[in-house]
Design a protein around this nucleic acid. Structure first.
Length: 287
DNA sequence: AAGAGGCCCTGATAGC
DNA sequence: TGCTATCAGGGCCTCT
């Protein structure tokens, strides 16, 4: 599910719900996520206030009242579910498990506030939590990440310097978080379609104007997706914070065999595996 | 040292 | 109905 736009939409709703609220209790049901949740994780969060919920790239950042941080990456299948609850017996109460909005399985972590309970669900367990002790460590954690597309650092000069003499194709670059942060497989496909660039084009062959279009469209696609509430595909429709609508705007993703949406183009959308990821493009108007 | 590929995991779906 | 194979939005690790 989650590329930058989906994570941002979740962040916005989560921030509204738990900002300035104190964590009463944390329950870890299954600590075997992508990285093992360490002993003491619950103790670390309990009795601390969430000052706000931030985000960098595809990571949610919980700003804690003792100037430490908790990161959450949703992996491929991580979702957050939010349940209101009565004050009475709010920690031990388990009636919420019957809630129709809550999946039956894979509810691995619960963070319990006085009137609200957030539940981390993740069937594939590619997501993870991470405790960060201070702002220095937070800075270090993301020091190797490229800028987000919106950032002024993601500009022509930066892109050209990265592409010089590189043999890699442009799609892999867009997915490379060291180059640019927050783009995943869906939006990489969409960005390249709008930019009229073939996904397997080697970056050292790109013209300046191609790079400019890729920069502009990276911003455009992510911004539009955030505005539409992200993309909901497969069974993620009812998930908290991601009842998105952007999938209706997909020009190439999951449209193999269908007509190209560019009005002047008669091509059909092709599918090709690049570095083990499904890649969709129009080989008529993307060159 | 850049770049390709394997792998972590479960669930939905397609094909027989 | 029930089996098997394939695929899924991420990113780390290893190998060449």
């Amino acid at each position: 599910m989650p590329e930058l736009p989906e994570v941002e939409v979740i962040r916005q709703s989560l921030d509204k719900k738990i900002k300035r609220k104190k964590v009463k209790k944390v329950i870890v049901r299954n600590k075997n996520l992508r990285f093992k949740i360490p002993d003491g994780f619950s103790r670390f969060l309990e009795n601390k206030k969430i000052l706000r919920v931030g985000r960098f790239s595809k990571y949610l950042i919980f700003y804690l009242s003792n100037k430490s941080y908790c990161l959450l990456h949703l992996g491929m299948s991580g979702t957050i579910h939010l349940l209101n609850q009565n004050k009475k017996n709010f920690i031990t109460n388990t009636s919420f498990y019957n809630s129709p909005i809550l999946p039956k399985k894979h509810n691995h972590v619960e963070i319990i506030f006085e009137k609200i309970r957030i539940i981390y669900n993740d069937p594939r367990r590619f997501g993870f939590f991470q405790i960060i002790d201070n702002s220095k460590m937070l800075e270090k954690r993301f020091s190797n990440f490229g800028p987000e597309p919106f950032h002024l650092d993601f500009n022509l000069k930066y892109v050209l310097s990265f592409f010089k003499k590189k043999e890699k194709n442009i799609k892999n670059f867009l997915l490379d978080q060291n180059f640019v942060s927050g783009i995943g497989n869906i939006y990489a496909n969409e960005i390249l379609f709008l930019s009229k660039v073939k996904p397997d084009k080697k970056v050292n062959l790109l013209k300046k104007k191609d790079c400019v279009r890729i920069i502009i469209n990276s911003r455009k696609v992510l911004k539009d997706a955030i505005k539409k509430g992200g993309s909901s595909i497969r069974d993620f429709k009812n998930t908290f914070g991601s009842k998105g609508d952007f999938q209706k705007n997909f020009k190439v993703y999951d449209r193999v065999g269908l007509l190209c949406k560019r009005s002047s183009c008669a091509g059909k959308i092709k599918k090709k595996i690049i570095s083990n990821r499904s890649t969709f493009f129009c080989d008529t108007c993307q060159i």
